[in-house]
């Protein structure tokens, strides 16, 4: 998710390698230069203001709601962002690589779940990491649990859910997610059955690229099966 990528997305883009052959001075294509978030913001604000002018009574109701949400955001957003910043500096990605795949059976599943909850970057940096660990012989169940936890259980985001959805809703959903993700991983592994080679081969240069992007050193030789 793009909300907890600090500098990761920049790094990921650097390693994307899709800008090959372009001199650094060349402008990126127009599609990439447009700030879609600003476009979206402008359109929605223009629509809101226009409609409010046409229908003043509905507009005042919309205005009240907007003000309520602005207030709530002011009280919660800085805290969530600071917490993400603290995680970014105190939790090294090394930790994830070091412990993921450690422990077998139930313990391994729980470790995968816990490591997934650490806000250490957007989902797409977790894919190559999981792929390479799978190649190294990590359990399919552990990787499914890890990726799912990485995608949907992020500690700072739970705070947003508490704030906007209430404690009962947030805690119940969190509890059910944690409880169901592990059996889901085990079921996925059962259905997976390695008929073909699990994951494609990685060449060493590619492994190096991911290591640089993640700022970690992957254990052992992941380039060959």
């Amino acid at each position: 998710m793009s909300e907890n990528d600090t500098d990761d997305d920049k790094k990921a883009r650097v390693t994307d390698g899709d800008s090959s052959g372009q001199p650094p001075s060349a402008k990126p294509p127009l599609r990439k230069r447009i700030r879609w978030d600003y476009v979206f913001l402008t359109l929605s604000v223009v629509a809101l203001v226009t409609l409010s002018l046409i229908f003043p009574d509905k507009g005042s109701r919309a205005g009240k709601v907007v003000w309520e949400y602005v207030k709530e955001m002011i009280f919660i957003l800085p805290a969530v962002m600071v917490l993400m910043g603290l995680f970014a500096v105190w939790v090294e990605r090394d930790l994830v690589v070091k412990y993921l795949g450690k422990g077998s059976g139930g313990k391994g599943l729980v470790i995968a779940l816990l490591l997934g909850t650490l806000p250490t970057g957007p989902l797409y940096v977790a894919f190559p990491l999981a792929a390479m660990l799978l190649k190294k012989g990590a359990r399919v169940a552990n990787m499914v649990v890890f990726l799912s936890a990485w995608a949907c259980i992020k500690l700072p985001l739970e705070l947003m859910e508490f704030q906007f959805m209430g404690w009962r809703f947030a805690l119940l959903r969190l509890g059910l997610t944690v409880a169901l993700v592990i059996p889901m991983g085990v079921l996925a592994e059962r259905l997976y059955r390695r008929r073909e080679p699990a994951v494609r081969d990685f060449d060493p240069a590619e492994v190096k690229e991911v290591e640089v992007a993640l700022g970690v050193e992957l254990p052992g030789d992941v380039s060959s099966g």
Partner: peptide, 21 residues
């Protein structure tokens, strides 16, 4: 991160205003 997410946050609040209003 706040600076980067700012426009999206404000946009979604405007959308909420549109939906509710």
């Amino acid at each position: 991160a706040t600076k980067r997410m700012g426009p999206s946050v404000l946009a979604i609040i405007a959308v909420i205003g549109l939906i509710v209003g």
